[in-house]
């Protein structure tokens, strides 16, 4: 049986149950976060653009921020019966696609996204069990909710499982 493929767009969060696969394409400086409950085999994926929602108006799409999308993912999973101690997080992306001579804030956005995501996971007491971050290449990630494994595809480094 083919598993249902659920796409996560940029600045988007999706949650699903086994058997299905969550996928997001072409992460550059954005961060892809997966959270999976190994007991219930449910989980979610976020495609994060910015580190923090501080200073933004309420009209903004919350899913583009690390803090809001992590909070949303955890709350939704808990509502579905997940336990915090059974949740496993993995993070991907946060690359610097272009190398410039000057290193401005915006060019370090990948780094800042990675750092913020790690920080908020710690604040929400979620285990970070694996990561494949930074570098200068794009990544497509897919989370198989049946087994909790994330496949990372990149044109520079091929496919890897995390």
């Amino acid at each position: 049986m083919k598993k249902e493929l659920i796409k996560v767009k940029m600045a988007d969060v999706q949650i699903s149950t086994s058997p299905s696969v969550l996928i997001t394409y072409g992460l550059g400086s954005c961060v892809g976060l997966t959270i999976w409950d190994f007991k219930l085999k449910i989980g979610g994926m976020a495609h994060i653009m910015l580190p923090s929602s501080k200073g933004f108006t309420r009209n903004d799409n919350f899913a583009k921020f690390a803090d809001c999308s992590i909070e949303f993912l955890i709350n939704e999973l808990l509502k579905m019966g997940a336990r915090k101690r059974n949740l496993e997080a993995k993070i991907f992306g946060g690359a610097s696609m272009f190398s410039f001579e000057s290193k401005s804030d915006i060019l370090n956005i990948g780094d800042r996204n990675v750092e913020a995501t790690i920080k908020y996971l710690k604040e929400f007491e979620i285990k970070l069990v694996n990561q494949d971050v930074r570098g200068n290449f794009g990544r497509t990630i897919s989370l198989d909710l049946e087994v909790g494994l994330v496949e990372v595809h990149s044109i520079k480094k091929g496919n890897k499982i995390f």
Partner: peptide
Amino acid sequence: QSTPAFAYDMCGSIIDMICIQLAQKTT
């Protein structure tokens, strides 16, 4: 204009930095 910066990769990964840059100011 700045000096050019080259990338050969997935479209989404090339454009996302520009999107991020603009996302700080607009929707």
